[in-house]
C-alpha cells in the first residue's frame, strides 16, 4: 500500500524531488527529501534535509469528503504550526511550504542520529541510550525538565498536542556542550483547547508512553517532566498556580480512569 501512495506523491512532486519514506501513520505518510521546494541549491541548502508530510487520498470515503477533509487537515496543521511558532520559547518545526491541493506539508527536518547507533534523536531513543549506563545523569534530567517546559508552554497558551508520545518529541543539539533542546513534532491531532481534560490527556499519554518503554526509571522521568511543566505555570503567579493545581488534579483523575469518560449505556 505504501508503494501506491509513494507513487501518488512522486507524480506531482516530480522526479526532481527524490523522496524517502520514513513513517506511515493512519492519516499521513512522512518522507524526507534533500530538495527544498523553492530555495535554490547552494551553500545554505546543500546537505540539508526536509520533511514532506502527505495525507493520501482515502478510497473508502466519498471524494467530496476526502478532498474537503484532506485540505482542512493540511491547512489546520499548518495554521497550528504557524501560531505555535509565534510563542516565545516554544520549539516546533518550521513550516516551509503548504501544498493544500495535494495534501502536502513541507516542514523543517529536526533531529539527527544519536551516537553509537542508538537511532534517531527522539526522546524514546535518547532515554534508551542512557538507560544502560547513566539513566539519572544530569543531561537526562536537564533534557526532561526542558521537555516538561515545552509542554508547559504549549498548554499555558491553550493548545494541546493530541498525540504526545516519546516518538513525537525530537531532540536537537543545543549550543551548550552535551545539551539537547526538545522540539515537539507532529501536530496532526493538535488543536486549540483550553479544556483541562484535553491537557490532562496529553500528559497522560506521555506518561504512559514513558512507562511502557522505560518502566524501570519511569517514575523519576515523569516526575522531572512534571517539574519542568509546573515551572512554566508557577512563573505566572497566583493565576498560574491555580491553573496548575486544577490541571494536575484532572491529570490524576484521567490517570485513574484511564483516559476515557464513563459510558452512557
Amino acid at each position: 500500500m505504501s508503494e501506491e501512495i509513494t507513487g501518488q506523491v512522486r507524480t506531482y512532486v516530480t522526479d526532481n524531488i527524490p523522496i524517502t519514506l520514513i513513517s506511515q501513520g493512519a492519516e499521513a505518510v512522512v518522507y524526507t527529501t534533500p530538495i527544498h521546494p523553492y530555495l535554490p541549491i547552494d551553500d545554505s541548502t546543500k546537505g540539508e534535509k526536509y520533511i514532506i508530510k502527505y495525507r493520501p487520498h482515502k478510497r473508502y470515503r466519498h471524494p467530496s469528503i476526502d478532498q474537503a477533509l484532506t485540505k482542512h487537515r493540511t491547512v489546520g496543521e499548518a495554521r497550528l504550526l504557524s501560531k505555535l511558532s509565534q510563542i516565545e520559547g516554544l520549539q516546533v518545526p518550521k513550516l516551509i511550504a503548504c501544498d493544500v491541493y495535494n495534501g502536502c506539508l513541507w516542514l523543517e527536518f529536526l533531529g539527527q542520529d544519536l551516537p553509537q547507533g542508538a537511532g534517531f534523536s527522539n526522546l524514546k531513543n535518547f532515554l534508551w541510550m542512557h538507560a544502560a549506563n547513566d539513566p539519572y545523569s544530569n543531561v537526562v534530567r536537564e533534557t526532561l525538565l526542558k521537555v516538561g517546559h515545552q509542554i508547559g508552554l504549549l498548554h499555558w497558551n491553550n493548545y494541546t498536542h493530541g498525540d504526545l508520545t516519546s516518538s513525537n518529541i525530537v531532540l536537537v543539539r543545543s549550543q551548550i556542550v552535551d545539551g539537547w533542546e526538545p522540539h515537539l513534532i507532529d501536530f496532526g491531532l493538535g488543536s486549540v483547547s483550553s479544556m483541562v481534560e484535553d491537557k490532562g490527556v496529553d500528559l497522560y499519554v506521555l506518561e504512559r508512553a514513558i512507562m511502557s518503554t522505560h518502566s524501570e526509571f519511569a517514575d523519576k522521568y515523569n516526575a522531572w517532566i512534571i517539574e519542568g511543566f509546573s515551572n512554566v505555570y508557577k512563573l505566572q503567579g497566583k493565576a498560574g498556580q491555580k491553573k496548575l493545581d486544577e490541571l494536575l488534579k484532572r491529570f490524576a483523575e484521567v490517570r485513574m480512569r484511564g483516559r476515557k469518560r464513563t459510558m452512557i449505556g
Binding site: 506511515q24 501513520g25 493512519a26 492519516e27 473508502y60 470515503r61 466519498h62 469528503i65
Partner: peptide, 13 residues
Amino acid sequence: AMLVEITERAMAH
C-alpha cells in the same frame, strides 16, 4: 467515513 477513520487509527496504533 468517520467510523472507518477512527477504526483505521486504532489499527495503526
